[in-house]
Each structure stands twice: as structure tokens, then as C-alpha cells.
Nucleic acid binder design. Structure first.
Length: 429
RNA sequence: GGAGGGGUGGCCGAGUGGUUGAAGGCGCACGCCUGGAAAGUGUGUAUACGUCAAAAGCGUAUCGCGGGUUCGAAUCCCGCCCCCUCCGCCA
């Protein structure tokens, strides 16, 4: 959400920023509503002031046993006028607020121009895609051949876009998550959190999924929503709080299931477990002072990259272009992992700085250390560190052998009880 | 799910219709005192919005949230949220 004052002073900057995203200008509409809202507010406040005044006089007159009738008549008249104004004021205020909630964040100047993902820029890459002396298979085929990845049975109980992992693959997924959590909580300084998976609409409004993207979410009959990412739960850990500046930055990580309706993705990535309704992810969230957030984004991205390196998975870092950066972010790096079975790079992590965009929506502030007066909005960042399901895919495809077995990367062996090879033919279920 | 109790400033806590943004205390800041410190003592100590070129000042709102009653609400009424206690159910 944007600062209204800033929009008043920089309407053209807002519209120009929206144009970079390919979005329509809104400043004129905002300013018109805001102007009418403030005019109404001022008018109302004059009446309120007068009413408070006269009411005090009535108290005084009555205390002395005088006749307050004329004064009461005056207040009655004032109140008449106030009723309509109050309604108007409230309505205009709500209109301004709801419009503000639909305006995306302003991109930083470093974000490359471009309309869609084809204009994203490769920042750096790591690792060399392995040379295969056979034709590498896709993860869904590998998993099925191992007998440990079952889409059919998942469909019977849950429908499309679900998967059942069994035996060594179920364990592999857990091992991957453990490696990530252990790395982030020790080497990278993040605090592990186990947050709620069901949240209220205010939490989702705070992080920006609502009000615009409700169609992507699963909502329960009780009105709560399943989180589409732990970013929601973790970032809301600072909602409505005033933090002590000395405690910043806060770094937290959580391993959670994520739920997405994939409403707009019919027909895309229908094979395999690339795009499921339910998947697991280790999320990273940082809360920083404003001047630290850009450096923190670099740091966070490096933390995510570290996991890919440990797993010996080639990847590249993409700077998303203006048209591809998400609603709440001012800048985003995607990590794309090499998938030999699909002969392409696929997104496995997305690290974003939202600046004070989310902080304003959830009223997350801090008091700069040393200062006793005044608060400022914090900056919030989030990144996948990494998407666990997609990491599993990458491990399968990159570490597959000609016979369909999977070599367990060294970093995962301790978490696999020393298992070195996941081989076909295990008797399972 | 049933019954009851409660949500006041950074914290504790008073306040059941009238000049209360809110007593008192703690904490914090600054000063006095002291060789220095403690103790003592004095002063100050919320947020948002509006007005203003800006500051000061002024105005408005805020005692969980929203609505209502009233000339006037932290105080009365209604709805919601949250917390606590007991009962029931339950991993």
C-alpha cells in the first residue's frame, strides 16, 4: 500500500511506475477521491468541534441549574448536518482505502524493463548441466518407474494436481527440507518458526494476496484461508507491532505445506509435481530497517542459492523484469534450476523485497534505536529457500542414472540414513 | 458447543455519563543533588489524520473492533474479535 501523502506529491511518479508494469494510471482517481474525502472530513470536524464546545457548555449550565434548552437546540441542529456528512466521509474513506489496496508496489529503478518473463535478465549462473550418455527422463517418469510417486491414487482421493510420495521419495522430500532448515537456522542465522497454516483475511491483505488475488486461494467453510506460502504467516508475525530497532534485522524460516487453487493455470504443467495444489516449501522472511533491505535481498538470495549448491544442482539467477515482478514486490530475483528431463530451467525460488509495501498494509513499524519518539515502517522481504517439491524434482532429474536409479547427493546422505542410491524395485505399498 | 469473567497509554493499574488523552505507579528522557553513583527530587514522556510553505499552534479521532443511545460515552445498549476460568468434546 502506498502513502497517500506521497501520491499527492508525486502523482506522475505513481502513474509512471504503474506504466512500467503495464498497468493503467490511477493517480487522478485516487486524488479526486482523496480531495473529496478530506474536504468532507474537514467540514465534519468543524461541526464536531462546535458540538463538543456546546456540549461542554451544556454541562456547565446544567451544573449551575440554568436553562440549557437553547444550547441543546443548537446541538440538535448541528447533529442534523453531521449525519449526512458522516456517512459521506465514511464512504469516501473506504473508497480511497480499497482503491489503495489494489495498487501494486513501485518498482525500483534497477528493475529491467520488459513486458513478460522473456525479458528477464540472467544475473549469474552456477554449475554446468551434466552431460548424459542416455536420454534423461522427467521426474514423473522416474518417480513412477521407482514405484514411489503416485499421481493416480492421489487423483482418486483428491483429484488433479496432487501427488502421493512413498518410501524413499517421501523420505527424500523430508531430507531435503531438513537440510534446508538446518542450513538456514545455523549457517544463515534464521530462526525456525512453526506458524499457523490457516489465516484470516486480514493477514492475507497484509501481505497483498487480498483483495485482488482471492481466486488463487483455498478458503475454508469457517472463513479462514489456507496459506499459499509461509510468507503470509511469517511476515504477519510483525503485524501491528512496534519493534525495537536494535533487534533488526529479524530473520525467520518455516517449513510448511502451501496451498494454491491454481485458478488461472488450467492446462499448464499438468504432468508431474511442478504445479500442485499442495506442496511443501521452506520459506525465508526478513524484517529490516529501510536502508538495509536492498543488501538483505542479496543476502537472502545467496542463502537460497547455497542450498542448490549443496545439492549440486545447476541454476541461474534471474532479475525479473518490470512486467514479471509480483504485485507486492519492488524487485525480485528468481532462481531457476536446471531440469535435464525437461531440458530447461524452471523456477525453484523467488526472492523479493517489498520495501514498506506490506509493512504499511499490516502496520508493522519499528522505533529506530536511540530515538524515543517516532516510528517508521519496517521493510519486509521474502524468498523461497527453497520450494521443496521442485527441489525433489531437480534432485531426481539431475542425479538420475541410466537404470532409473537416483544417486543421493552427498549433502542429503546423513538425512537419508546413509542411503546412497534410490533404486527401482523396492517392494512398496 | 455450554456457563461465567475480562480486554484502558511502553508496562502495571484507577476510573460506571460531563471540561479525562485519561489519576497513581513502573519504565524511559532531561535537569537538580553527588567526587562519582545509588537514593532523593523536579520536569517531560502516545498514535493517526487534518489545517499550515514549514514549525509552533489549533482542530478531529483513538480506552479490543464496529454500530447504537445521549446535548455529551472509557463509562449505558447491541454485534463481532481476542484472552482467562469451569464443563463437554477431542489429536
Amino acid at each position: 500500500m502506498h502513502d497517500l501523502k506521497w501520491i499527492r506529491e508525486n502523482p506522475d511518479a505513481l502513474d509512471a511506475a504503474l506504466a512500467r508494469r503495464g498497468a493503467a494510471a490511477v493517480s487522478a482517481t485516487v486524488l479526486d477521491l482523496d480531495k473529496r474525502h478530506r474536504a468532507t472530513t474537514t467540514e465534519l470536524q468543524v461541526l464536531q468541534s462546535r458540538r463538543n464546545d456546546v456540549s461542554k457548555q451544556i454541562g456547565g449550565v446544567k451544573a449551575k441549574g440554568g436553562d440549557a434548552a437553547p444550547l441543546m437546540a443548537e446541538v440538535a441542529e448541528i447533529k442534523d448536518k453531521m449525519t449526512a456528512l458522516e456517512e459521506e466521509e465514511k464512504l469516501l474513506g473506504e473508497k480511497v482505502k480499497s482503491l489503495l489496496l489494489t495498487i501494486p508496489n513501485i518498482l525500483l529503478p534497477v528493475v529491467p524493463d520488459g513486458r513478460d518473463e522473456s525479458a528477464n535478465v540472467v544475473v549469474r549462473s552456477w554449475g554446468t548441466p551434466r552431460e548424459f550418455n542416455f536420454s534423461p527422463k522427467e521426474h514423473a517418469d522416474l518417480g513412477a518407474a521407482l514405484g514411489l510417486m503416485d499421481f493416480d491414487q492421489a487423483a482418486i482421493m483428491s483429484g488433479a494436481r496432487f501427488v502421493v510420495l512413498k518410501g524413499a521419495l517421501a523420505r527424500l522430500e523430508r531430507a531435503i527440507a531438513q537440510l534446508m532448515l538446518d542450513t538456514h537456522t545455523t549457517a544463515n542465522g534464521y530462526t525456525e518458526v512453526n506458524p499457523p497454516l490457516l489465516v484470516r483475511d486480514v493477514a492475507l491483505t497484509g501481505t497483498g494476496q487480498l483483495p485482488k488475488f482471492g481466486a488463487d486461494l483455498f478458503q475454508t467453510t469457517a472463513g479462514l484461508y489456507l496459506i499459499p506460502t509461509a510468507e503470509v504467516s511469517l511476515t504477519n508475525l510483525v503485524a501491528e507491532r512496534i519493534l525495537d530497532g536494535a533487534t533488526l534485522p529479524l530473520r525467520m524460516t518455516a517449513f510448511t505445506p502451501c496451498f494454491r487453487s491454481e485458478a488461472g493455470a488450467a492446462g499448464r504443467d499438468t504432468k508431474g509435481m511442478i504445479r500442485n495444489h499442495q506442496f511443501e516449501k521452506v520459506e525465508l522472511v526478513s524484517i529490516t530497517a529501510p536502508e538495509e533491505s536492498e543488501a538483505e535481498l542479496e543476502r537472502m538470495t545467496k542463502c537460497a542459492e547455497g542450498i542448490l549448491q549443496k545439492l549440486e544442482l545447476p541454476y541461474r539467477v534471474m532479475a525479473l523484469c518490470a512486467g514479471d515482478v509480483g504485485f507486492g514486490a519492488n524487485r525480485t530475483y528468481d532462481l531457476e534450476v536446471w531440469l535435464p528431463g525437461q531440458n530447461t530451467y524452471r523456477e525453484i525460488s523467488s526472492c523479493s523485497n517489498t520495501g514498506d509495501f506490506q509493512a504499511r498494509r499490516m502496520n508493522a513499524r519499528y522505533r529506530p534505536s536511540g530515538e524515543t519518539k517516532g516510528t517508521r515502517f519496517v521493510h519486509t522481504l521474502n524468498g523461497s529457500g527453497l520450494a521443496v517439491g521442485r527441489t525433489l524434482i531437480a534432485v531426481l532429474e539431475n542425479h538420475q542414472q541410466q537404470d532409473g536409479s537416483i544417486t543421493v547427493p552427498a549433502a542429503l546422505k546423513p538425512y537419508m540414513g546413509g542411503l546412497e542410491i534410490i533404486a527401482p524395485g523396492a517392494k512398496i505399498l
